[in-house]
Nucleic acid binder design. Structure first.
Lengths: 253, 253
DNA sequence: GCGATCAGCGGCACG
DNA sequence: CGTGCCGTTGATCGC
């Protein structure tokens, strides 16, 4: 089950020069120094080096790689000493170094990995915005869309609209429970538009749910929350239902 | 180079029942339906199934898995039909299903993956807070620490302190460039403390740098920025230097 | 379990 | 490049 380290080095070097995807499994320790620094004592891990230079170290637990190197400006090299095979990934800007020191290699192989497909995702915030743009009446009667992804100095408005009274409405969309940051984000947009246009602007936070704290802040600032239920299906996302919530119930301290 | 699909299924099933870590490489398409939905047409990918149920699909590019299933409440099953081997990962709460349909398998193997080590990271925000707590004079003469990680209704204050004039000071720490959200976060804390204590509270944003927009907002609200340079070394993080920046230079509109 | 925040966040899009 | 922000964010910690 064990692989000779020099043979492993050959496999690794060949994979790197051929720009193939490399998988190595073995006992290793890991050192990282860059934006932060880390040490990982020895254990059996999976290392993946992709053709674009992405470098991953996976433990047997968790979704996220325990150590890694992002795919750009990443030079990978190997070193063989008596008892260890070191695979090093160096990156500049920011200067970072990742070093995987193998004491034993169980498996090492290169794969060409032909793949021309890219992922199609449905149910993103952008999808929801597209849907809502087609029927803002779902949120409120008389609400008409003006602009999607309207650029502001301090961010981007998801949907800019006008209500039945001709008042400007900023809609901030969230695909999941809105928290404090969503509220401050909306507040920031409303403030900037208020100040630029010089007239009262409404702000509506549109999300499947909102945390209690976020709701309190929202109401304190005179913003509104509209509950949005959506459902993802395979060729698109659908809006299941909208439940307006009365505003201004909180005490304006 | 090709592997019989029924043989691959055996390897996969054995790995799952033994709770080993599984690696499969082959030509597959992927379907996902859950919090969002996605489709990925056929191509060669690496699939990793970890002992805790983490399920990863990696293309030959990029650091992040293109499709995945998080490590909990995740039931994995296999199906063999005439031309395909399907590996399914089903999860409840939220209900999500990930389906990988292999038309050919180049490699499939289980690894026991003994690993008892956990990552030690240095240079985290918590590290910096610990360091600063030991010498707040670095930020400003006479500044004395009161409490670290002081819980607030709307979040957690990194460092709560008192300045030479006896005024309360809230310090928000960032390990990288502070943006608008960092400023609104600090503002939120200062507002809450102002309101609860009923006396003027200073807010200091401490980060290696700050974006222009964030600085403008900061100054508009009368908050302060202190530049913090730190350096990570292997057994700890060090503070390299601190450069106070004069406040209140912006026009208070 | 929810809530809030950090993360070596990664990734994308825009200026 | 930086700035801002979404993400099937994940991971952690407190309640």
């Amino acid at each position: 089950m064990l692989m000779d380290l020099s043979q492993a080095k050959r496999v690794v070097d060949d994979a790197l020069s051929a720009c193939h995807t490399l998988i190595v499994v073995g006992d290793c320790s890991v050192r990282y120094h860059g934006r932060a620094a880390s040490k990982l004592a020895s254990g059996e891990r999976i290392i993946i080096v992709k053709s674009d230079g992405s470098f991953l170290v996976h433990q047997n637990k968790g979704m996220a790689a325990i150590n890694y190197q992002p795919p750009k400006n990443n030079r990978i090299s190997t070193e063989l000493s008596t008892n260890t095979l070191i695979i090093k990934a160096m990156r500049r800007s920011p200067k970072e170094i990742l070093e995987v020191i193998f004491t034993s290699v169980l498996f090492a192989q290169a794969f060409p990995m032909r793949d021309d497909s890219s992922l199609k995702v449905f149910g993103t915030e952008k999808n929801l915005a597209d849907l809502l743009m087609q029927d803002l009446e779902l949120i409120e009667p008389g609400l008409r869309p003006l602009k999607q992804e309207s650029p502001l100095q301090k961010g981007m408005i998801d949907i800019f609209a006008r209500d039945r009274d001709g008042k400007n409405v900023i809609i901030e969309l969230k695909r999941r429970t809105a928290g404090l940051s969503s509220v401050t984000q909306l507040k920031r947009y409303v403030d900037e538009v208020d100040q630029r246009i010089g007239q009262e602007t409404r702000g509506i936070l549109c999300a499947p749910s909102i945390t209690p704290n976020a709701l309190k802040s929202l109401e304190k600032w005179g913003l509104e929350f509209v509950r949005l239920d959506f459902e993802v299906s395979n060729p698109s996302a659908k809006i299941k239902g909208l439940q307006p919530k009365q505003k201004g119930m909180g005490e304006f301290l």
